[in-house]
Design a protein around this nucleic acid. Structure first.
Length: 422
RNA sequence: GUGAAUGUAGCUCAGCUGGUUAGAGCGUCGGUCUGUGGAACCGAAGGUCGGGGGUUCAAGUCCCCUCAUUCACCCCA
């Protein structure tokens, strides 16, 4: 191939498919707005430090997946691998946390240096919401129900919701101690990566999928037994409220999530239609994050959903517009020669300004070819001007469904078209 | 980062153990129909066979390297 190609793990999203993205984006905007969230847009790249501390060293994202580079002034910058940390950074920078609660949503590209695979790309798109200043379980369940509502509106009804509680700083520390103690005795049976994590980030061993680890973990202590009474109460309330909303959630004590900033509630929503990368949505509570990033001690909850994965599932559900559709026109303008085209240009413009979808074939091909294209465009009306029409000063207006033809003076055309389309 | 499979026309794919000039369907464009569409029929354009090197009288086909895609591992959206 002589020309350049899109970099590995990136894709061009082409016209028929972009229509589906637009539908999804609108649906996200509407759903978030209904739940009381307002949109925030942050830069595509941030200072590297914005991600390293909050996400946590020892996590895959920080250790091997970040696109980090140095700019011409020697600053270390990173293409955002997720959006929670940037949102917190922006909220602190602009003092948005001065009036609580603060509810924000976002959508846009993220970047992770990974080996591409179905449902996983180096540039992917996520949308998500963050709710600050709400310590109670109502906020946890609002976030979950928001995510499920967006999925429902995208036509995704086949999913699995799993939740867990990681406890707060104090009870998590006690659990970590117990877990390390347990695993250290069995370190020889653990996989090499898990053995490595034992000292760096032991909780991550819990969601290991290595068969060897799995056997060991069956006997391992779980977080449940270590939750302090406040955390246990919070988790119980979350589950009760979910049940009251008719939302089925499975308690999976092995869910720890890939980022260090989570506390208490964590959850994942997965689809059975995606192969190995089946997590569509992940999120949870991060009561310590704002403070860890240099702000006041303000609790937060949020979620992030992968847009490519949503589309993958939604396409199977058939709830999105067909990918082979062309733009739907109201009127097609057919000019048979240059003079006719020039005559129609202002009329075309007037019709468009009246709010109708109109287009003209500029290729100057034969009338039958133009009408055929007009029919394919879904237009109900065609406006035809050639030598004959120019002689009389009236265009031929043809109903593309009934094939009826009438002559209409050029001056009255815009109003006439508007009446026919009304 | 590891493993496996796959790269031939815009798209979906043929091309048998190497053999002459590279194939089909769909799509595109043109004609039949000189100014009235969707059909049918006829025709055309479009390929350095992903790229580079090697073996051979001869490579789309075999070997090596490389790039990319797909699937899985790891992990995540």
């Amino acid at each position: 191939m002589k020309h350049s190609t899109a970099p590995r793990g990136t894709v061009d999203i082409l016209p028929p498919e972009t229509a589906q993205w637009q539908v999804l984006e609108r649906l996200i905007d509407e759903t978030c707005t209904r739940f009381g969230y307002r949109e925030i847009r942050t830069p595509i790249f941030e200072s590297t430090e914005v991600f390293v501390k909050p996400i946590g060293e020892g996590t895959d994202i920080v250790d091997k997946e970040m696109y980090t580079f140095t700019d011409r002034a020697g600053r270390s910058l990173t293409l955002r691998p997720e959006l929670t940390a940037p949102v917190v950074r922006a909220a602190l920078q602009h003092n948005l946390l001065a009036s609580l609660p603060l509810k924000l949503y976002y959508r846009g590209p993220i970047f992770r240096y990974e080996r591409p695979q179905k449902g996983r790309y180096r540039q992917a798109h996520q949308w998500g919401v963050e709710c600050f200043g709400a310590p109670g379980p109502e906020a946890d369940v609002e976030i979950i129900s928001l995510g499920l509502e967006a999925m429902r509106r995208a036509g995704i009804t086949d999913y699995r919701l799993e939740i867990n509680s990681l406890g707060c700083e104090t009870c998590r520390a006690r659990f970590r101690e117990a877990l390390v103690a347990f695993l250290r005795d069995r370190a020889s049976s653990l996989s090499p990566t898990s053995r490595d994590r034992l000292s760096r980030n032991p909780l991550r061993i819990l969601d290991s999928k290595e068969p060897a680890d799995h056997d060991v973990l069956l006997q391992a202590p779980t977080m449940d037994g270590f939750l302090c009474s406040a955390c246990a109460e919070h988790f119980a309330a979350v589950r009760t409220l979910l049940e009251a909303m008719g939302i089925r959630a499975l308690h999976n004590p092995h869910i720890v999530r890939g980022l260090d900033y989570y506390t208490r509630t964590v959850f994942e929503i997965s689809s059975t239609h995606l192969g190995a990368q089946n997590t569509v949505c992940g999120g949870g509570r991060y009561d310590g994050l704002v403070k860890a990033m240099g702000g006041p001690s303000i609790p937060g909850v949020g979620l992030a959903m992968g847009m490519e994965r949503m589309l993958l599932v939604a396409r199977e559900a058939g709830t999105l517009p067909a990918r082979d559709g062309k733009p739907a026109l109201d009127v097609a303008f057919v000019a048979l020669d240059e003079a006719s085209a020039h005559l129609l240009v202002p009329v075309l413009n007037s019709v468009r300004r009246l709010g109708y979808a109109a287009d003209m074939d500029y290729t100057r091909r034969a009338i039958d070819k133009q009408l055929r294209a007009a029919g394919d465009s879904g237009a109900r009306w065609a406006v035809i001007v050639g030598e004959d029409e120019r002689a009389t000063g009236a265009a031929t207006v043809q109903n593309l469904v009934t094939r009826e033809r009438v002559r209409v003076g050029l001056d009255e055309l815009p109003a006439d078209i508007a009446r026919r389309l009304a």
